[in-house]
């Protein structure tokens, strides 16, 4: 990192004596703190396991028969069908595994894109705070935050009928606002620091100052926000799939739960239970990871 970050300085003064003296940078300290957080490490471990499962599905190593209609209807749990089968005889185990890939796809696409948009627009608004650029971006944020989320997604889905990414687009266009607001606040603080003044004094263009010198110093906010958005995206996908606006091709935990609403009435809970367990495991692990990340990266956060 180019300049000494204010966060690093703050952490140093706040924690003198708790961390070894040679760990100077924000990131070294954060990693040190994170690896000491037991819940965070467990969460990260579980997320990594899920990620390997998703990667394997993507590479075609397992869960390749998730769509096959071969088994008997509503088979109980057995060696052949570890989690049983659903109403049309599909293997629930394979479908639950395949859905891991869908979840990571939705989560990563939405988290990465909305973090990028939030960072770019938030940095612009913060750097030009008080001018018309800031006003317009704030107005846009206010407008997007005022439209009820599920209705907005429904409207986007119908406006882009048939587009499998309608759900992603709707989520990205509403989820960036929180990131944008946080980055804006941080940039307003950072732009008065000496390293910005120094860059300006030697004639660095404004956009380069914003994106090369200021924005990298908000990376810790972006990382935490990205994990929060990831979880929000996976959870929204479930509800949208239930409403018929979610994943269009393939299968997801949300689609499995939506299917299962018919089955639970007949007393067959396998689809519902296993989709819920997989979903809960990933979301819970990601929440634990995200919490630990916040604790490690945000020196201002009051320790628990």
């Amino acid at each position: 990192m180019s300049a000494a970050t204010p966060e690093a300085a703050a952490t140093q003064t706040a924690e003198t004596g708790t961390a070894p003296a040679h760990r100077e940078s924000l990131w070294a300290k954060a990693i040190y703190k994170f690896t000491r957080d037991r819940m965070g490490m467990i969460g990260l471990g579980i997320v990594v396991v899920y990620f390997i499962v998703a990667l394997g599905v993507w590479l075609g190593l397992w869960a390749t028969e998730w769509g096959d209609v071969e088994g008997p209807k509503w088979a109980p749990m057995s060696a052949e069908y570890p989690f049983g089968t659903n109403i049309i005889g599909q293997d629930i185990f394979q479908r639950a595994l395949y859905s891991t890939k869908t979840a990571f796809e939705v989560g990563l696409v939405v988290a990465v894109l909305s973090t990028i948009i939030g960072a770019l627009l938030g940095a612009l608004a913060g750097f030009f705070s008080g001018t018309w650029i800031d006003e317009i971006i704030l107005w846009l944020k206010g407008v997007l935050d005022s439209i009820p989320f599920y209705l907005f997604v429904a409207a986007v889905a119908f406006a882009l009928t048939g587009n499998p990414y309608a759900m992603h687009i709707a989520m990205v266009s509403t989820f960036w606002t929180t990131t944008g607001r946080l980055v804006r606040g941080e940039v307003i603080k950072l732009k008065n620091f000496e390293f910005v003044e120094a860059a300006r004094a030697i004639g660095v263009p404004q956009l380069v100052i914003i994106y090369r010198h200021i924005l990298p110093n908000t990376f810790h906010i972006l990382l935490v926000q990205a994990t929060i958005v990831f979880v929000a995206a996976i959870k929204s996908e479930v509800i949208l799939s239930f409403l018929g606006l979610g994943v269009q091709d393939g299968v997801s935990w949300g689609l499995m739960i939506a299917e299962s609403t018919q089955e639970v009435l007949a007393g067959f809970f396998n689809n519902f239970v296993w989709a819920s367990v997989f979903l809960f495991g990933l979301v819970m692990a990601f929440n634990m990871f995200s919490d630990a990340l916040q604790d490690a990266l945000d020196p201002k956060k009051v320790a628990a």
Partner: peptide, 18 residues
Amino acid sequence: AVVGMSISFLIVVIAFQI
């Protein structure tokens, strides 16, 4: 609280109905 945050609303609705 973390458990409550991690369970999807839809799962809670279906489970409570059952």
